[in-house]
Computed example of a mutant assay.
Amino acid sequence: MALSKMDNLYRQVILDHSDNPHHHGELPKSTNEIELKNPTCGDVLKLQLEVKDGVIKDAAFSGYGCTISQASASMMTDAVINKKVEDADNMVQVFSDMIIGDDVDTHVLGDAAVLQGVSKFPARIKCATLAWKALHRSLTNQSK
């Protein structure tokens, strides 16, 4: 089956974020930090946030994983910087609903909306949601 031009565009965005991840590395002024692992495939993600006055001022991630998990983390960090904590946590729910195939308004997700197609591949859903789960747990002070 041939991919449509739009599918190819989405694939390129995902590959670009995976090959050239935004906000990858350590965050010296981190106020919130968490590390999560996906035992199904071995992805490991450490998320660091700098939260000040209820706003995510900066974000960074490190670790290793598949193309989908790394791209999702890159897109997520882009999307949440300069967002209020409550708005960022609401984005987690929008992403989670989108990734299981629910019809949601994805405009708040930025590039991460291109991951909507992952819903067709249930084995990859945990890869796509790892960074978003880390964000939620970090913002709500849940260590597990």
Rank of each mutant, 00 (worst) to 15 (best):
K5V: 07
L9Y: 11
Y10H: 13
R11W: 02
Q12K: 09
V13P: 08
V13T: 06
I14K: 08
L15P: 02
L15I: 15
L15H: 10
D16L: 12
D16K: 09
H17K: 07
H17F: 12
S18E: 02
S18I: 03
D19I: 00
N20F: 05
G25R: 04
G25W: 00
E26K: 11
P28T: 04
P28N: 00
K29R: 13
S30K: 11
E33T: 06
E33Y: 01
L36T: 10
G42T: 09
G42H: 09
V44E: 06
L47N: 14
Q48P: 14
L49Y: 11
E50R: 05
D53E: 12
V55I: 15
I56N: 12
I56F: 13
D58T: 11
S62V: 03
Y64H: 15
C66L: 03
T67H: 09
T67A: 08
I68D: 08
S69N: 15
A71D: 00
S72R: 05
A73G: 01
M75Y: 05
M75F: 04
M75L: 08
T77S: 04
A79G: 00
A79I: 02
V80A: 00
V80M: 02
K83S: 07
V85T: 10
E86P: 07
D87I: 13
A88I: 08
V92F: 13
Q93S: 15
V94F: 14
V94D: 02
I99L: 01
I100N: 07
G101Q: 03
D103R: 07
H107W: 12
V108A: 15
L109E: 01
G110R: 04
A113N: 06
A113P: 01
V114C: 00
V114N: 01
G117Q: 03
S119Q: 13
S119Y: 15
S119C: 10
F121N: 04
F121I: 00
K126W: 14
C127G: 02
A128G: 12
T129L: 11
L130T: 13
K133A: 00
A134C: 12
A134N: 11
L135R: 14
L135N: 06
H136C: 10
H136Q: 14
H136G: 15
R137L: 06
T140E: 02
T140G: 01
Q142C: 13
S143Y: 04
